[in-house]
Simulated assay, not measured.
Amino acid sequence: MKAWSYFLLLFFMIVSCSGNSNSQNLTWYNNSVISNIEKDPEKPEEFERVSIGISAQVFYISKKSSDYKTIMEKASLSFQKSKAFNIGIEKNTNIIRQINEIK
């Protein structure tokens, strides 16, 4: 019985520590609408500046990201049509890494 308990403990520790590290590095703003999109005045060739919500928190979309086109399409839809999305912001950088449909 003791061996079985240790096995289960080990199993739960492995399962709880595994997962997608990318999603753990994101802060999510759920049911959010983008209130403004403009070129970043400091680095217009690298970033788009995005404001989220009424309080106008400022985040960025990197033009060098492999998902730039997809993220910009969803951001533009949110801005133009006031469509809400779940928006994933990379911690410590304020860069938008994911924009997902609300389920």
Rank of each mutant, 00 (worst) to 15 (best):
L77F: 06
I14C: 07
F79N: 13
M72D: 04
I99C: 05
S35Q: 04
K64D: 11
S35A: 02
K64A: 13
W28R: 00
S21L: 09
I52C: 06
V58F: 09
K64N: 11
F47W: 11
I99K: 06
I96T: 08
I71R: 06
V58L: 12
M13V: 13
L10T: 14
T27C: 01
K81W: 09
N92H: 14
S65P: 02
S16R: 03
P44F: 01
W4G: 01
L77K: 12
F7K: 05
Y60E: 05
A3K: 14
E45Y: 12
E38L: 00
N94V: 05
S65F: 06
I95C: 07
I87N: 06
Q80I: 15
F85P: 03
I61M: 10
N22G: 01
F12N: 03
T93K: 13
Y6C: 06
Y60R: 09
S78R: 07
Q57T: 10
K81A: 14
C17W: 10
G88Y: 10
Y6I: 06
E46W: 02
E101Y: 15
M13P: 00
N100F: 06
L26W: 07
T70V: 09
S62Q: 04
L77C: 06
M13T: 11
N22V: 05
K2E: 14
L8F: 13
I99G: 06
I52S: 05
I95G: 04
N92P: 04
W28H: 02
Q57W: 08
I71D: 01
G53S: 07
S76W: 04
E46P: 00
I95A: 05
N30Q: 12
F59T: 03
S16H: 01
V58W: 03
G19V: 08
S62N: 12
N25S: 14
S66Y: 08
E101V: 14
I14Q: 03
I95L: 15
I95Q: 12
F79D: 09
P44V: 03
F11M: 12
